[in-house]
Design a protein around this nucleic acid. Structure first.
Lengths: 215, 215
DNA sequence: CGCGTAATTATGCAAGTGTATAATTTCCCC
DNA sequence: GGGGAAATTATACACTTGCATAATTACGCG
């Protein structure tokens, strides 16, 4: 009896773990955390459900791993374009605003994921910690960018004012991110970035428009 | 056998419906839409599960009713303080910003509800329509307030610019609302409103601070 | 080549899910 | 106060859920 066809293939542990996490993220975005059932995840990853238990001791653990994977991916996508330390501080700030308000950061799926995880984030301490850390990381980096750009323009600001500016700019970006992702058809192409740059410029008193054109 | 104790009490249809909706909102905020099970809702409303089917032909219908109840309550809470048509346009705009960034509008439960419903909103056409209508209502009212305040200040703006200003101001408010509700401990009391007023002022070029002090 | 270990599948289970239907109980009206 | 219709409870059912445990299968290593 030659069974030419293998019934399954062994994969490296890390690859399989990541495949399971990606399948989980897809389903969480589509149906929420409770809607992402173990069986559905297994099917999406072309695997039987028992295998999940082999890599994650519980669904809870898989969900937490998926959340951290998503948050890491989001920060990477946001900061990659502004990571090149070249250019003026103003240019880097502009690049940051641009990246935050264009795909793949602005994306219905990304917003859906964020929303689906929120409940768990508010309850599970570990997920809560990840959330707060990510938020602080975003805002701090934005604050550093703003501080550098203001200093560059010859108008350095005290810490208290910098904090308020960073919170405000972060809020505009978050709000536009949210609305752009939740109502993708409500805005023209490039409209979000333009409004974002304009708003950050108005709040900080910096001229981001000029930078955008130069590019 | 005198059973002095009634086994249940008949309630007016509307009162019972509302009680069921309120119980549903509590549980949706706590555990998400799928976590708000029919049995849990019934228990929270001090009722047996069969009664839900008597008032709502399915769980889906109850969820939709609860969503619309929540959205209506949110808009009412936001616009009530600015509803009094007295005072200058600038005062009304300031009142709107204040109301949007203080409890009960800013509230972890409110954000949790918004997030829990998002998945369904993206899929169910009826809920999607409600969502878009509410968003448009908010932004339009904000745009009217801004237009009036600008005109009052002797600096009327064309429609295209008004649209962009409204989107931007709405985004700051939404972003602050989100962050204030998702991380209640990250901001001092009154900090959100202050940053909100300051940002709207910077974006529109109007002086909302003065108005806030006068009050 | 075969052997053993770990990856993977197969099967089962108890609890929870929405919904349907029948059995009670309340309370208005004459 | 006693019918009777409507509100409410009680019970049942088919299906899904996460998890556990046993049975297979792949494949590196001697």
């Amino acid at each position: 009896m030659n069974d030419e066809r293998r019934k399954f293939k062994r994969e490296p542990a890390e690859a399989r773990k990541e495949a399971l996490i990606l399948a989980t993220l897809e389903l969480v975005a589509e149906n929420g955390v409770r809607g992402a059932t173990v069986r559905a995840i297994a099917e999406r990853a072309d695997v039987t459900q028992g295998l999940i238990r082999h890599y994650f001791s519980s669904k809870e653990e898989l969900i937490i791993a998926a959340y951290e994977h998503h948050m890491t991916a989001m920060t990477d996508e946001t900061f990659a374009p502004a990571a090149g330390a070249d250019g003026t501080a103003l240019q880097r700030l502009t690049a940051f605003v641009n990246a935050s308000l264009t795909p793949p950061v602005v994306d219905p799926r990304s917003i859906a994921l964020w929303a689906s995880f929120l409940n768990k984030v508010q309850q599970d301490p570990q997920m809560k910690a990840t959330h707060e850390r990510t938020y602080a990381y975003f805002r701090d980096r934005l604050e550093v960018l703003i501080a550098a750009a203001l200093k560059e323009a010859g108008r350095p600001a005290p810490a208290a004012r910098l904090r308020r500016l960073a919170i405000a700019c972060n809020a505009v970006i978050d709000g536009l991110w949210l609305e752009g992702g939740a109502l993708p058809d409500a805005f023209g192409p490039g409209e979000l970035v333009e409004i974002g740059r304009h708003s950050v410029a108005a709040i900080t008193g910096l001229n981001l428009e000029q930078e955008a054109e130069k590019k």
